[in-house]
Every structure is written in structure tokens, then in C-alpha cells.
Computed example of a mutant assay.
Amino acid sequence: MTFIPLIVANRPDESPYQQAPHGTDMTMLRIVPATDVRAGDLVLGGTSAPLNPNRLRWAMQSAAAFVALPIRMWGAVCIDGQTPFWEPDEMVMVIPREHRPADRCAVGDRVERTIVHTPPLDYMGRQPEKRLMLQRGTVTAVDDGALSIAWDGRWPNAEIPDTGIRPVDHTRVERERAATGFAVGDRVTRHNDTTTTGVVMELCRHWYDARSMARVDWPRDPHWDTRTVETSSLAHALPVAPAAPVLVSA
């Protein structure tokens, strides 16, 4: 084993920052190339340059530790399962999955996975690039560690790579709702049709004027299928429970 001198710097202190889960053994921290990050590894951040045992390097901890769902696309590594951000030889700080606190999923827990979506041909008959998306679901049964999951909605022309699953980060869900009023996986209705229920599959901004948009799966309405609509035209099918209050000691 080679000892690499390294300083972990710039730990974020803003409110969205999340420490590694309670019980994480930080002595198990390893530094590996992005291509060697495995599904289930706990990602803590990255380093400033390739490592050299004869030189001191700096590392930066991410704003939130997250469980990896790595997949290679467009010449990059999407460690979070969605964002093509990491160069293949970029060095990443991880807690190997064998040493991170185990996830104990129960019935009713929310989980997510990566899918590869092939959009339909555009109006000029061209084939857009494939896209990485996150699909959320609910655990319906647990049998000796094996999970049964009801996935939210349908993604037409979707491929499901073998990247595993991870628990949904509820802080991220609340951020989505704060920004757009909705989160991926929310059940919604249209203002002019409260009898038809759809599932939010994706949230985005309009390419022209940055309006908040949502791609919604309407499983019982074949005329709508999975279409992108303005979030202002949607309403929650069921009330969203408010976030639990944060108690601050004096």
C-alpha cells in the first residue's frame, strides 16, 4: 500500500452540505480513478490532480456525500448516475461499498436507479442523443435482503443499465419542490382534468425562456403519453406532506 500525502480542503459549510452517514469509518477512505468507482461506493469528492506519493495534493469534499451509480457516457463517467461530469482518469475519494453503513430498506422506502432514455425523433426527423435519467420507485416487499420495487411511471425506449439502486435523498426531493413546486415521482393532475393522474418523470427548464417544465407520464391517457408541459398547468394529485420542522437548541 502506498501512502499519499493529501489535504482535504474546502469542506462546504452551507446548509445543503451533508456529512457522510453516521457510522462511516473514514479510515477506509480510498482514492481511485473515476472509472474504478463502483455502484454502491460512497463518493466524498475529488482531488485537484493525479496523485504522486512525492508531492502534496489537495482534495475537495463534495457538497453532499452520495452513493455512486456509475455509468460511462459521452466519453465521461457519470458517477451520480445522471451527470457526465467526471473525466475517466480523474481521482475520486470514496468509501468502498464494503465499508459504508449498510442501507436497511423497508417497505415504503423510496429508492432510485439510472435509466438511459432514447428520445423520439425531433420535428426534422433527427435522432436526439440518449439521455441519462433517474427513475424513482417505492419498496413494496423485502424478502431476505431481496427487494421488490414499484417504479414510478414509464420511460418509453428506456434501457436499464446494471448500476444498482440507492435510497432517495429526501433533501434533494425538497429542493426540487422548492424550485419547481414538484419532485420527480410526484403524482399530479391537470388543472382542467382532475380525474386523470400522471407521474412526474423529469423536471427541466424551457430552452427559450427558462419556464419550469415537467415531463409527465399519463398511463391512462394514450393521447398524452409522456409529454413535457409547464408545471403551472399541474396540481398535486395528493397533498404533499410538509417537511418536518427543524428544532434548534438554544
Rank of each mutant, 00 (worst) to 15 (best):
P161W: 09
D152F: 04
T195M: 05
P53V: 08
P96E: 02
D217W: 07
M26G: 04
R110E: 13
H170A: 13
D122N: 15
V240Y: 01
D186C: 09
M26H: 15
I165Y: 02
M26T: 13
Q19R: 12
L238Y: 12
D25Q: 09
G46P: 01
V188C: 06
D103A: 13
T196P: 00
V199G: 00
C204R: 13
A63W: 08
R110C: 03
N52E: 06
R110I: 00
G40N: 02
D103F: 14
A141Q: 15
M73S: 10
T171E: 13
I149V: 15
G137W: 03
H236C: 08
T231Y: 00
D89L: 09
R211M: 13
E176M: 14
A49M: 12
V199H: 04
T118L: 12
T197A: 07
M133S: 02
A158C: 06
P219G: 06
H223V: 08
V94Y: 02
M93Y: 00
P219M: 02
H99Y: 15
H22P: 06
A102E: 15
C204F: 11
V67Y: 04
A178H: 07
L42I: 07
Y123L: 13
V32P: 00
V142M: 13
R190C: 06
H22W: 10
C78I: 02
V184D: 03
R175M: 13
A179R: 14
R55N: 11
V188H: 03
P84V: 04
V216E: 06
E176F: 05
H206L: 08
V188W: 01
A243V: 11
P21H: 05
T231P: 01
L29S: 04
P239Y: 08
D225S: 14
G46M: 07
R227S: 12
G137N: 00
G46C: 10
E159N: 09
L134M: 09
D209L: 06
V139A: 08
R177G: 01
M1L: 11
R30C: 04
W151V: 08
V94D: 00
W58Y: 14
M91P: 00
I165S: 03
D186V: 07
D80P: 01
P53L: 07
L134F: 01
T118P: 01
V139D: 01
I95D: 03
F182G: 04
R104K: 13
T194K: 15
A150P: 04
F85K: 11
E90R: 12
V184C: 09
G81I: 03
T226R: 08
D122I: 10
